[in-house]
Amino acid sequence: MQKTEEMATVLEQQALGSNIFDLKLKAPQIAKLAKAGQFVSVYPNRADKLLPRPISLCGFDPKEGSLRLVYRVTGEHTGTEEFSRLQAGDTIRLLGPLGNGFTVEPGKKAILVGGGIGVPPMLELAKQIKAQQLCEQTIVMGYRDANTFLLDEFEQVATTVVSSDDGAVGTKGTAIDAILANHVTGDVIYACGPKPMLRALRDYARAKGMRCFVSMEERMACGIGACLACVCQSTHEDGHSNVKNKRVCADGPVFDAEEIEL
């Protein structure tokens, strides 16, 4: 997998409700190589914050040479808080594109599921499925509350149903609740979000005889498969260390749900 280090220039940044930011960057080399479901390592400028922050590509445009990152500020004095202060013209160092990304099974009706901060990467996937006419798709988005960031954009791409933890919008409960309430059907699930959601989707897919691909999250250091920080347990021996540990950054982040222990 080809990757490159690039100094990106901020084109614009805006807040999407509280604590969620939408960052558009000029990074032509990474944009040229990118695939939906891949991520970039974003390096804080502060010298005391050493480790890169892995952030999924919410969008990219190879022609324009741009990338779009949508991320949550996790707290005070964090790297993401630093990123939220970036303004047009500022620069930020990236390494990417990283990871495998989603591979869509053509012709198989897709259910795209995003939960919490797993919502952003599903947008580019939905757009690619539509643009390349890969398959039919239904989008299921699980939000915490009434801050339904990116929802309007999903609705422009395909039929979208929604859940929220507090019932403020859509079905009260989880993405699974929204799937059931809206009788969403399909052949394959593509999902990104919190582990309990991914686990529930795996079980649902199993019961229905569907395939299920999930994008995983783990703490990272190198981001490129060298340090073995970011492993998740796999059902079979991994090809790297001959144990049952797949590297989320290099073998993933997208895995067949049956290939890993959720």
């Binding site: 783990e218 703490r219 990272m220 920080a229 492993v231 260390s241 144990v243 540990n245």
Partner: peptide, 14 residues
Amino acid sequence: PWAGNPTPRVAETK
């Protein structure tokens, strides 16, 4: 082969 430790395996410090 050694399987190593459970995750999280890394943490950032100052």
